[in-house]
């Protein structure tokens, strides 16, 4: 069910209950990776599905449904950050350099990367989440975020180089070498 959005594309519109079951993990994960706050991510996801319920009649297809959910979740996440002054716990520059990172295990690396993504600027963060969580191409991300494709590509490239620079410097040489293979490629 992790990539259900792709599977239901161009299919007939499911019922509202099915839509919630199919897409709740997508909506929640976008909110969670953006906000890094479980309760706020759940609150935002609930609001998105409530709004979906109100507008259910205007949706045309399963593809339109997924597009709508991604767009509204992204916009609401940005709104929440701006209105409530939610700020990530750490920033990329101010992030501590924990010694445990020297022996970073894969799961810790994933957790570290997840936290670092949450410190990116809003648009870069959303582009990274759409690109690597939702596996979307830059042109699809551009449609969802209402940006130019080139802006999306630039945002992804900048975010990647920022994350890579911060992460690779703190790894064991072997892990760093592994991650540094073929650096700088941002698109498929």
């Amino acid at each position: 069910m992790t990539q259900s959005a792709g599977l239901v594309a161009e299919a007939i519109l499911p019922t509202f209950t099915e839509a919630v079951e199919l897409h709740k993990s997508m909506v929640f994960s976008i909110a969670w990776h953006f906000l890094r706050d479980r309760s706020r991510a759940e609150e935002l996801s609930q609001d998105v599905f409530l709004e979906l319920h109100r507008r259910w009649g205007s949706l045309r297809s399963a593809e339109h449904l997924v597009f709508w959910l991604r767009k509204v979740t992204g916009n609401r996440a940005i709104d929440m950050i701006r209105s409530r002054k939610v700020r990530p716990e750490t920033s990329l520059d101010a992030a501590a350099e924990p010694t445990t990172l020297e022996q970073m295990h894969d799961s810790l690396l994933a957790s570290y990367l997840e936290r670092m993504v949450a410190t990116l600027p809003e648009k870069q963060r959303l582009a990274i989440v759409m690109r690597y969580q939702e596996d979307l191409e830059p042109d699809e991300i551009a449609r969802i975020l209402g940006m130019n494709v080139s802006t999306v590509k630039t945002n992804i490239a900048r975010a990647l180089s920022l994350l890579q620079a911060k992460t690779v410097g703190r790894l064991q040489p072997n892990t760093a070498r592994r991650l540094n293979e073929m650096p700088g490629e941002t698109g498929k």
Binding site: W32, E42, Q133
Partner: peptide
């Protein structure tokens, strides 16, 4: 790239709480 693969793994989808629906 391997870094992007790590990022993809880090940003895997997660489930909301059990009583979400």
């Amino acid at each position: 790239t391997p870094f992007e693969q790590e990022l993809k793994r880090a940003l895997a989808r997660q489930q909301p709480s059990a009583d979400f629906t």
